[in-house]
Design a protein around this nucleic acid. Structure first.
Length: 334
DNA sequence: GGCTGAATGAGTGAAGCCAA
DNA sequence: TTGGCTTCACTCATTCAGCC
């Protein structure tokens, strides 16, 4: 790898001249066109690439965005990350991925590492206990945009699906199909998106004059082991005997299908199924599973746009706290 | 007009200085 | 001699002020 210093020495010019030419400022700095061409050609032939550590040191910019998610292996997060990467590429930025595993001490470490790497901005899927660190980042003028959830006590920008309306659409679909004893399976995560889905279920049931008791909701442990969660769902369904169930997350839907299979029940004759957040498996399952699809691409694109606005790269987006409507995909599970 | 020297940024290791 | 502390030089790319 050749440096700007070596190019300057080889061509017998100063480092400043090489830097100006390679940064497209030869006219502004009134550098001879022939010399500029010579420098560009030599840099190209010798495979010159700027040392990003040095650039970051000098400019205070790294052209890297930190993407902090809960679990990168999840379908929703993977899809989100894919779109974010493509969007950021348009602005000449790369992504540094971090997965918190919903672990508070890991959150603190990851944010510190990203800060030490001088990342220019943060796209974050919030985890419990993150508020303080994120507030510190914004106080240090580091732009942060949240996705999928938000903290009600902060003014941080966010983009997420309308969890309440999405859940309500799923429940209304079940009621319209004639289901009367509907169960709701969620997790016990203490974040706003799950609370909103839960609220969407309860209020839609009440407004439709349907019975909602404590046994209408099963909250599974968020980071619970798969086999254990499947068993708890199966036990719950067996005891409650609902005519329909809505799963509050796609991974719960996948676990739920396994639980229903264990019980030997048939969808939709024994139990109707709707899931919040679509999944590839729902389309190939027999029957196909009805789901509320999250507008993942829209969320990612808007989050990047807001972040670029905060960083002064794009025009600042006026509406910084946005909820986008999900779409009910009707299949054959109801 | 065409070009260069030097300051700058944060971190780190080496060198220098002083007291015990 | 050793430990503790400070200062300096160096990394590399960028950019302003200034020289010829």
């Amino acid at each position: 790898m050749i440096s700007i210093k070596e190019i300057a020495a080889k061509l017998g010019v100063s480092i400043a001249t090489v830097s100006s030419v390679l940064n497209g400022k030869e006219k502004e700095r009134r550098i001879n066109a022939a010399l500029a061409d010579k420098i560009k050609r030599f840099a190209l032939e010798s495979g010159y690439h700027p040392n990003q550590v040095a650039v970051s040191l000098r400019t205070g910019k790294s052209r890297i965005i930190g993407l902090i998610v809960d679990n990168i292996s999840g379908a929703f997060f993977a899809s989100l990350a894919n779109t974010i990467e493509k969007e950021l590429e348009k602005y000449g930025y790369t992504v540094l991925y971090c997965s918190t595993g919903n672990n508070e001490s890991k959150v603190e470490t990851l944010i510190r590492i990203l800060f030490q790497h001088n990342v220019d901005g943060y796209l974050v899927i919030p985890a419990a206990g993150m508020e303080e660190q994120l507030s510190e980042l914004t106080s240090r003028k580091r732009p942060v945009v949240l996705m999928d959830s938000y903290f009600p006590d902060t003014k941080l920008p966010y983009v997420l699906v309308n969890n309440y309306e999405g859940t309500a659409a799923g429940i209304k679909h079940l009621i319209k199909a004639g289901c009367r004893n509907i169960a709701f399976v969620c997790n016990d995560i203490s974040l706003v998106q799950m609370a909103e889905r839960r609220r969407g279920f309860v209020e839609t049931m009440i407004s439709a004059k349907m019975q909602v008791g404590e046994d209408s909701i099963l909250a599974t442990p968020y980071m619970g082991e798969k086999g254990q969660v499947v068993r708890s769902i199966a036990a719950y369904l067996k005891k409650k005997r609902p005519d329909a169930v809505m799963f509050a997350a796609n991974y719960l839907g996948v676990y739920g299908l396994e639980a229903i299979k264990k019980l030997g029940w048939t969808i939709p004759s024994d139990i109707g199924v709707v899931c919040f957040d679509d999944h590839e498996l729902f389309q190939i399952n027999t029957p196909e599973i009805t789901a509320v699809k999250q507008p993942v691409e829209d969320i990612a694109q808007l989050a990047v746009k807001i972040l670029m606005g905060e960083m002064g790269i794009e025009k600042k987006v006026t509406e910084q706290q946005v909820e986008i409507m999900g779409k009910l995909i009707r299949r054959k599970s109801v």
